[in-house]
């Protein structure tokens, strides 16, 4: 394989948040990222930087990442103040260096929210999302005994809307980008998916109350309808799901 040619390469200055552990103090540390091919993904650029750090005997930058195809939701960081970087509808692993220019300074920070504690460097603990799902983000059906898949017809339009909501990858960009560190897009997407599908109806009330209650308990902020979550969501999930959650929640609270 040929190395990428000279004119396709750029040099960058990175300022990366370094923090040893949750209780330690952190700070921005500068690194040089040189000879970065524009075809690289952002994470591949960090791989190159980390290889250099390891060779110099220092501790490499920690960052969650796994599938590197934008679906697992592991990766994520604030890049120049934008969740998953400046491109719309993109996770960090799918952000390519062709969107940067030679000489750019790139500030990289972890997601910030009271509910997301920093584990190390850019790695944060997003188990608060799991807790919200555990509170009711499922349909209570045991294995076995399900009726035929076609027993309940689901209009195509409904299935498509449910799928729009179900695309959430749980990366946390919504809460990270929200001026109030609110998790309402995440929670609203799950509540919406099941509120739309007939299978979710029997538990709809309980689900809305329990999931919103857990979301509040985890310490996320309140939605003020700023739409930053929608703008940064790598899957483009609409805030209409928040409206639907509000409706479900109010229905459950008042009409019970």
């Amino acid at each position: 394989m040929k190395q990428a040619s000279g004119e396709k390469c750029i040099n960058l200055k990175l300022k990366v948040w370094r923090q040893k552990a949750e209780e330690s103090n952190g700070r921005l540390e500068s690194f040089k990222a040189e000879n970065i091919s524009k075809d690289m993904s952002f994470l591949e650029m960090l791989d190159v930087v980390n290889e250099e750090i390891i060779l110099s005997g220092k501790d490499p930058i920690a960052l969650d990442h796994d599938c590197r195809e934008g679906i697992c939701g592991s990766c994520g960081a604030m890049v120049n103040g934008r969740a998953h970087g400046p491109e719309k509808g993109t996770t960090l692993c799918q952000l390519h260096m062709r969107h940067f220019s030679n000489g750019d300074t790139v500030v990289i920070e972890p997601w910030r929210s009271r509910a997301f504690k920093v584990v190390k460097d850019l790695v944060v603990d997003r188990s608060a999302f799991d807790k919200i799902i555990q509170a009711g983000g499922y349909i209570s059906v045991n294995t076995g005994g399900a009726p035929d898949g076609n027993a309940i017809p689901v209009p195509q339009e409904v299935a498509e809307k449910a799928m729009d909501a179900a695309e959430c990858i749980g990366c946390g960009a919504c809460a990270a980008a929200c001026p109030n560190a609110s998790a309402m897009l995440f929670t609203g997407a799950k509540i919406s998916q099941f509120a739309l599908l007939p299978q979710g109806h029997p538990e709809a009330k309980k689900r809305a109350l329990a999931m919103v209650g857990e979301m509040d308990k985890q310490g996320f902020g309140n939605c003020t309808n700023e739409k930053e979550c929608e703008a940064e969501c790598p899957k483009g999930i609409s805030i209409i799901n928040i409206a639907r959650m509000n409706r479900e929640f109010l229905k459950s609270s008042i009409l019970s």
Partner: peptide
Amino acid sequence: IDQCVAQGVPFAREFGGQL
């Protein structure tokens, strides 16, 4: 398939609502 539909997996549907 039955199990996953019951769990609320939003499989693609035909206009009539069938899988």
